[in-house]
């Protein structure tokens, strides 16, 4: 049996935060909340886990460090060692100070782009993707709480939404 989806529109972020708390404790399943700007504290209420993107960035950064080092070691030490300006190039370590800037740039390059790409792919925010927000006003000044309800409970859920401060409630067809 398919569940009904109900969209409730709110006008204020604090009302949404309190409503989400109430709805959760009343046993209503919140599918999603669409907001024009981040509502701080809502993740804890909905039980959304902390994002691990920062860890990703760290791992990408380490990868960048290693790739940059490997590249410079291969090109300057292994494949065609050259001595420029008397800087010793027979071991990577001896000439490391000269390689620090590019090591750093490679780290930042990989960390930043790796993390940004991971974000776009994980959230599936890409050119050509259709927006999912049910009401166009949710990118402007309204907040939409999307809940699920069994057909039999639709009316009671609507009542709960209205009670929690929703300005409009619509059952999604």
């Amino acid at each position: 049996m398919s569940k009904n989806i109900i969209n409730a529109i709110y006008g204020d972020d604090e009302v949404v935060l309190n409503a989400a708390k109430k709805l959760r404790s009343a046993g209503v399943t919140i599918r999603e909340i669409f907001s024009p700007y981040p509502i701080h504290g809502i993740e804890a209420v909905l039980g959304v886990k902390k994002t691990r993107l920062a860890t990703c960035a760290f791992l990408y950064g380490i990868t960048g460090t290693l790739l940059g080092t490997l590249m410079m070691w291969y090109m300057m030490i292994n494949d065609w060692p050259t001595i420029v300006g008397g800087k010793p190039n027979w071991k990577y370590f001896y000439n490391m100070p000269a390689f620090i800037p590019i090591t750093f740039e490679c780290t930042v390059f990989c960390a930043a782009h790796g993390m940004a790409l991971t974000f776009l792919l994980r959230s599936w925010i890409l050119p050509g993707v259709s927006p999912k927000n049910p009401d166009p006003r949710t990118t402007d000044d309204k907040f939409c709480v999307q809940v699920e309800a069994e057909p039999a409970q639709v009316d009671s859920v609507i009542a709960k939404l209205k009670e929690s401060g929703a300005e409009e409630v619509k059952v999604q067809s």
Partner: peptide
């Protein structure tokens, strides 16, 4: 890019901004 402002999107968005 089909942005819809979901909770997880904002969560990640803020993290990405901070780390960047």
């Amino acid at each position: 890019f089909g942005w819809s402002g979901r909770v997880k999107d904002w969560n990640r968005f803020e993290e990405v901004s901070l780390v960047l």
